[in-house]
Write a protein that binds this DNA or RNA. Structure first.
Length: 800
DNA sequence: AGCACGCCGACT
DNA sequence: GTCGGCGTGCTC
């Protein structure tokens, strides 16, 4: 008989990252299962914990405390997810508790409260504190005098301190009614006042055609053609019984018009055929679907999903957050209706919780969502699709630093199902695996409409710099913008830099506005009348005089989207310009709103950061302009070329999707750079070969694995010291083929008054490294007192 | 993460 | 003497 529960507690630290044994009290026998949340005493407090196993015997040699209560009626993590959470924790060097919480909707994260309970009469000061209540929330602020008093009362047992674990997750409910038994209903006819006309009508209606179960008041009113207040009255009178109804907060418009599978082109058919066979035969294979923009990947996905459903299986489809547009969601929804659950950041916590529950209760067989949807509680998965697989947003940047692609591959192995990775510009890692036949390469080389890709002009911005009236616009781009405008067609302009200006500088003495907390200059946000730090969020007013030399010659350098918008408006006064960046899309739905306005042709030019490059599919766009293709190229990251190529290729694909021919203009100071050259030719395979050579030379992925250690502390000397110590501890663990770069200060060494140093390890095969890194974290406890933090990132996406 | 325990300097 | 400063170590 299992009397012991092993519980991982909600205290995310290295020391407590392990299961603790708890006794299952008699009152809870049979109610505790692995994967359930429980409330347990931990030290003096009460905390939430996850039951990870049941045992007959305790591992712990001491007195066990009992579980206080069980938070769930059924496990929130099924055995597959429980095992997966452990695997993710281990492979990403994060806490088990954290990975389990990551799998659940935010609404299920516990919140904690302390409360004071009066157990005996208190002196006057206590009366003031408690008033006429015996239980009060723990006061937010206490004066030293109050604190001292409270301590005394606690010691004298006049007051008790209690810890409460709160479960935030609540299904949304509505007031409803259900029917009493037939006899009661029949007797009501006599007791009802003759003047209660409405209630009589309702009663007659119900007797003629009774409803079953519980229905919302409004539904009943509508069904029997009475006013809701009549139903309300019937409930108050007691002949309709009150009921609480769980309603689904509804993120999808359920009244969507259903569509049918489309006829596939020969290429699509060939691809879909392979996927469908793999789904049917339950092969745990990974496909890399390399398809140019507009080649109809989505239709292939949808038909593959259909096959999974036909087989009685479920399907998981991951899409980058930014591409999870209403258009995209609508498409899947139109095909599969209410079998689809959508998980993305646009939903409220409550909505996410509801969607999650629908999946858990098998009411949804298809999940479409961003990164974290990879943990959706689906069972019997028949296929996993990752669209735009090269997107860096599939890697979570903070702990747990998991890559959705790796998690998907792991789950696919468990479920014996295929994974389809789709992209027009696959990541080098994936494309290289296809080269080695680890993945099966499938190509969709042509656009569905057979339209050629639009011509791309690369403009050398080094020429005629001095002569240009508008330093940010080449004559070619201006002409194209003008003619497009004249033809009443739409343009998309990409500038990967938000704000107004990247620098505010004094022309007299050279002073530059810098962030007080970070080693970076402040960005000018003119509409906000502020200087903003894009790293820590620090804000200050724009100075009118130089704080050093007091001159008024403060000038702004480096153009951001705000400034370009101003300039553009000046050059093209007639143009209606929409700006889309983090600043204009911060509000919920802001993103969709701008896209909708542009789609309805309420603007001529859409100017924005890289978010405009993804998922935007408007046939009316005939001009795509890239104002500065070099922003990403200059970064000290080995993926700079890959990023640039992907971004340019993607944004170029936005032009000429309709009947009218499109064109693309790329402005650059590096016109000869291969990333720009291959992007202009839309030649992925060419770029792949060239970049593979570069990576081989530099000993970078996909030829080598990478692990990035980031060491940070409030003092730079401490940070450097610890970084060197860690590097020295690490080196003896490695074989001679491994390469250790650093420690080096990060390019922005100080952010939010913490200094960052990093160590990059490149290796091919290091069996001892994983263990070594885990030990390192284990021992890093000693670093806590000097406020040193160590973060380990396996296969980092950002190396800066 | 909290919280207790414990060991030292500054006060009612 | 004791109150409270924070350094150290534990929580089944």
């Amino acid at each position: 008989m299992a009397q012991i529960a092993r519980v991982v507690v909600d205290v995310a630290t290295r020391q407590t990252d392990q299961p603790y044994d708890y006794a299952i009290p008699d009152s809870l026998t049979g109610q505790v299962e692995p994967g359930m949340r429980v409330v347990v005493p931990f030290g003096r407090r009460k905390v939430q914990g996850f039951v990870v196993a049941l045992q007959a015997q305790a591992d712990f040699n001491g007195k066990l405390k009992p579980i206080q209560s069980v938070m769930d009626l059924e496990p929130v993590l099924n055995p597959e997810l429980l095992a997966l959470s452990k695997w993710v924790a281990h492979t990403t060097f994060s806490f088990w508790m954290t990975t389990m919480q990551t799998m659940l909707p935010a609404a299920m994260k516990a919140s904690y409260a302390r409360q004071l309970i009066r157990t005996a009469p208190l002196p006057a000061a206590g009366q003031a504190l408690f008033g006429d209540r015996d239980t009060i929330p723990y006061p937010e602020t206490l004066t030293p005098v109050q604190a001292k008093q409270l301590r005394q009362w606690l010691q004298q047992d006049l007051v008790r301190l209690e810890y409460v674990v709160k479960n935030k997750a609540r299904a949304k409910t509505r007031q409803g009614v259900r029917l009493p038994d037939a006899a009661k209903l029949a007797s009501t006819a006599q007791t009802l006042s003759p003047r209660a006309k409405g209630q009589r009508q309702l009663l007659a209606g119900i007797q003629a055609a009774p409803f079953s179960g519980a229905l919302p008041i409004t539904t009943v009113a509508k069904q029997y053609d009475v006013s809701p207040s009549v139903v309300e009255a019937a409930r108050t009178a007691g002949w309709l019984l009150p009921a609480v109804i769980e309603v689904r907060r509804n993120p999808l418009d359920l009244a969507v018009k259903r569509d049918q599978p489309k006829k596939l082109t020969a290429d699509q058919q060939k691809a879909a055929g392979q996927f469908i066979a793999a789904v049917t035969e339950r092969q745990p294979r990974t496909f890399l679907l390399e398809g140019v923009t507009g080649s109809g990947k989505t239709e292939v996905y949808l038909q593959t999903i259909q096959q999974a459903l036909n087989q009685g299986r479920t399907a998981l489809m991951l899409v980058p957050e930014i591409a999870l547009t209403p258009q995209m969601v609508h498409r899947v929804h139109a095909r599969f209706g209410s079998a689809v659950a959508v998980l993305h950041s646009g939903l409220s916590d409550g909505e996410k919780y509801d969607e999650w529950r629908r999946i858990q209760h098998h009411q949804a067989q298809i999940v479409v969502g961003a990164r974290s949807a990879v943990f959706a509680p689906l069972t019997h998965i028949g296929v996993i699709i990752i669209d735009e697989e090269h997107e860096t947003s599939y890697k979570q940047e903070d702990s747990p630093r998991y890559h959705a692609r790796n998690v998907a591959l792991k789950r696919a192995k468990t479920f014996h199902c295929p994974v389809i990775l789709g992209s027009a510009t696959p990541s080098l890692e994936s494309r290289a695996r296809a080269e080695k036949n680890v993945y099966t390469l499938v190509r969709l080389p042509e656009r569905i409409n057979r339209k050629p890709l639009p011509p791309v002009h690369v403009i050398d911005m080094r020429e005629n710099t001095g002569n240009r009236v508008q330093p940010d616009f080449s004559p070619e781009l201006l002409t194209a913008l003008n003619t497009t405008l004249a033809r009443h067609e739409q343009s998309v302009l990409l500038l990967n830099r938000r704000g107004y200006s990247t620098q505010a500088m004094c022309r007299n003495c050279g002073w530059i506005a810098r962030c007080p907390n970070c080693d970076i200059s402040l960005t000018v946000h003119r509409s906000q009348h502020e200087l903003v730090c894009h790293y820590c969020g620090h804000k200050e007013p724009i100075p009118t005089r130089c704080p050093v030399c007091h001159s008024d010659k403060i000038r702004f350098f480096g153009s951001g989207t705000e400034k370009i918008q101003d300039q553009l408006q000046e050059i093209l006064p007639a143009a209606r310009i929409l700006r889309m960046d983090v600043d204009t899309t911060r509000k919920k739905g802001g993103h969709a709103k701008i896209l909708k306005a542009f789609g309805e042709q309420k603007a001529d030019i859409l100017l924005g950061t890289q978010m405009i490059a993804k998922g935007l599919d408007y046939p009316t766009v005939t001009l795509v302009g890239v104002i500065n293709a070099d922003t990403a190229l200059g970064l000290p990251d080995f993926r700079a070329s890959e990023r640039t190529f992907q971004l340019l290729t993607q944004v170029a694909g936005r032009a000429g999707r309709g009947d009218k021919p499109g064109q693309v203009i790329i402005q650059t100071y590096n016109p000869d750079h291969y990333a720009i050259q291959y992007a202009a030719k839309q030649d992925y395979e060419g770029f792949f070969k060239r970049e593979m050579f570069v990576r081989h030379q530099g000993k970078y992925p996909p030829y080598y694995y990478t692990v990035l250690l980031t060491i940070s502390a409030p003092q730079e000397t401490v940070t450097a010291q610890e970084a060197y110590r860690i590097a020295n501890d690490l080196k003896p663990l490695l074989s001679p083929t491994a390469i250790v770069l650093g420690p080096t200060p990060r390019s922005i060494t100080r952010i939010n008054n913490r200094y960052y140093y990093q160590i990059l390890v490149k290796f091919k095969k290091e069996p001892a490294l994983g263990r070594g890194l885990h030990n390192l974290l284990q021992n890093s406890q000693s670093l806590i007192k000097s406020k040193v933090q160590v973060a380990i990132d396996f296969e980092p996406q950002q190396i800066m």
